[in-house]
Design a protein around this nucleic acid. Structure first.
Length: 263
DNA sequence: ATGCCGTATGATATACGA
């Protein structure tokens, strides 16, 4: 089973890039974030025609939005709401084998890493806390679950181009990485990419649009993640971060993260 | 680290991303 996650930054604008990725990497499931479209405008038919007829979508106009498209069927589709908002940041499906796939889009958090003066940062921390409590509340060592998405935090020193220079930049501040570690502890999740890549090796999934030459400056961050519960840890087989998608015409600023599981 | 780049929208400026 191959699972992919991609913050697409408008699924309608980048439909052709999605199709190109699907053709080239053949994931069984693709979890999208920042689809930025209402459900009735989601490209249901085009993606079904591309081989992904099973779709769970939860979007709104302009902002956020998540979707799971699949070539294998799923039995359940659920949405969770965080911070009392219906702002389209979560959707999950359950596969025939009982595994849950959770697609999550964590708020970016604005510019100032202080919840007292920046409500976006407060929202980010609160949402992480609620997600942590929810997963912890359903803890069960047999739970087979995969959590993917744009978590908007680069937790390790080598998840950013300069640990020292980003310590006070939202996405890599200690308060955020602490909260993400607490979320990881909620179900003893395994970070699938770091399962394969040693902690001293730099690896990213996002490069700013603002760099003149994203590849040359290579000032990236690893904001997109695939985590698995202990019951699936031994099923991890491989990962791919198809960096070339960042160089495609009119790209997303995020690239996909792809994980192969044998189950 | 700051960028001044990219998305969306009853839009020609503004909010948001990170």
């Amino acid at each position: 089973m191959r699972i992919a996650t991609w913050n697409i930054n408008s699924v309608r604008l980048r439909l052709n890039l999605v199709r190109r990725f699907l053709r080239k990497y053949q994931p069984d499931l693709l979890c999208l974030q920042e689809t930025k479209t209402e459900d009735h405008l989601f490209p249901v038919k085009a993606l079904a025609k591309a081989g992904y007829p099973h779709q769970a979508i939860h979007g709104q106009k302009s902002y956020n939005g998540v979707a799971i498209i699949s070539r294998i069927p799923f039995t359940q589709r659920r949405i969770r709401y965080w911070c009392g908002l219906d702002d389209c940041r979560h959707i999950s499906v359950e596969l025939d084998n009982g595994a849950e796939i959770h697609d999550l889009y964590v708020p970016s958090g604005g510019d100032e890493p202080d919840p007292d003066i920046n409500s976006k940062f407060a929202h980010k921390l609160q949402l992480l806390g609620e997600v942590t409590d929810w997963f912890a509340s359903r803890g069960n060592e047999d739970l087979r679950a995969v959590l993917v998405g744009d978590l908007n935090i680069a937790p390790l020193e080598n998840d950013v181009w300069s640990h020292k220079q980003l310590l006070k930049v939202v996405s890599h501040t200690p308060v955020e990485t602490d909260r993400l570690n607490r979320l990881r502890d909620s179900l003893d999740w395994t970070d699938a990419v770091r399962h394969f890549v040693p902690a001293d090796e730099k690896i990213y999934s996002w490069w700013s649009y603002r760099a003149q030459d994203w590849a040359k400056s290579d000032r990236g961050r690893r904001l997109d993640h695939v985590w698995v519960t202990p019951a699936l840890k031994n099923s991890l087989r491989a990962f791919y971060i198809p960096k070339e998608t960042r160089g495609w015409k009119q790209p997303s600023d995020h690239v996909p993260v792809v994980v192969d599981l044998e189950f």
